Structures are given as structure tokens and as C-alpha cells.
Simulated assay, not measured.
Amino acid sequence: MFGSRNSRGKSVTCIACGDSVSRSDAREYDKHGDRWDRQDKEFEHLCKACFADLCQQPRDGLETTLDAAGAGEADRETFLERFRELSESDAHGD
């Protein structure tokens, strides 16, 4: 269900820092955002330190901001512009 047991002992390369680490000391990264659909996929990896630095961001209000920016409704360019504006105003307390 969670991939081949044979892959657990092999080394992988962290896409952030370039270090080679054992598969058990890494986290999978799916650039397509759908890590549960595993058929015919090869995942990239982050070492645990880079994963903690890069992926553990606060999510408070994320869904509200995505909705306000038009996620799933606005075209990509409009959505990204609105999301950036909303994120910056939240960061500045506006």
C-alpha cells in the first residue's frame, strides 16, 4: 500500500540541500501535490532537516485566504496575485 519495502534501504538525494540520505531518513515530496496516487510515480525527497525547515508552515487561516483569493474559480494569474496581496496584508496586520 505504501510502496515497495525494497526501497526503504536505498539512498535518496534531498532536493533542497543535495545530501544523500537513507530512504528511512527522508520524506517524500510530490511536486504534483497528490502523494496518495502512487501509481507510476517517482517521488523526490527531502531530508528530515530540510523538510522541517521548508514544509512546516503555519496553516491558520489558509483555507479562508485560498477561498478569498478565488481558488478553483479565478484564473491562475488572478488567483496568485490575489493570494499574494492577501498574504502580504495578513503578514503586515492590515
Rank of each mutant, 00 (worst) to 15 (best):
D30L: 00
A71T: 00
D67M: 04
E85H: 11
A69S: 00
S22P: 14
D53W: 11
L80S: 07
E28I: 15
M1R: 10
A74V: 05
K41L: 09
A68M: 00
L62C: 07
E28A: 13
R38N: 01
Q39Y: 12
R38W: 00
R5F: 13
Q57I: 14
F2P: 07
G72Y: 07
Q56D: 13
D60K: 01
E28P: 10
A26I: 00
A26H: 04
G61Y: 03
F79M: 00
S11M: 06
K31T: 11
S4L: 12
V21M: 09
F51Y: 10
H45Q: 08
F83P: 04
R38V: 15
R82G: 00
I15W: 00
H32M: 13
S89V: 09
C14R: 01
E63F: 12
S89W: 04
G93W: 02
D94R: 11
S7F: 06
D75P: 03
T13Q: 09
H32P: 07
D94Q: 11
L54P: 08
E44Q: 14
H32C: 08
L62F: 12
D40A: 12
G70W: 01
E81V: 06
F79V: 01
L66Q: 05
K48V: 12
D60W: 04
D67E: 05
C50F: 05
G72L: 09
A52F: 12
D25G: 09
Q56S: 13
E85K: 03
Y29Q: 12
S11L: 15
R82V: 03
C47K: 01
D90Q: 10
R59V: 08
S87N: 01
A68R: 05
E63T: 15
S89I: 06
E77D: 13
S7C: 13
L54A: 02
L80H: 07
T13N: 04
F43A: 15
F43K: 13
R82S: 14
F79Q: 04
Q57L: 15
F2E: 11
L46C: 08
R84S: 02
N6Q: 13
M1S: 14
G33A: 02
L46G: 01
A71V: 05
M1A: 10
G70V: 02
E44I: 01
G72K: 12
F51W: 11
V21D: 02
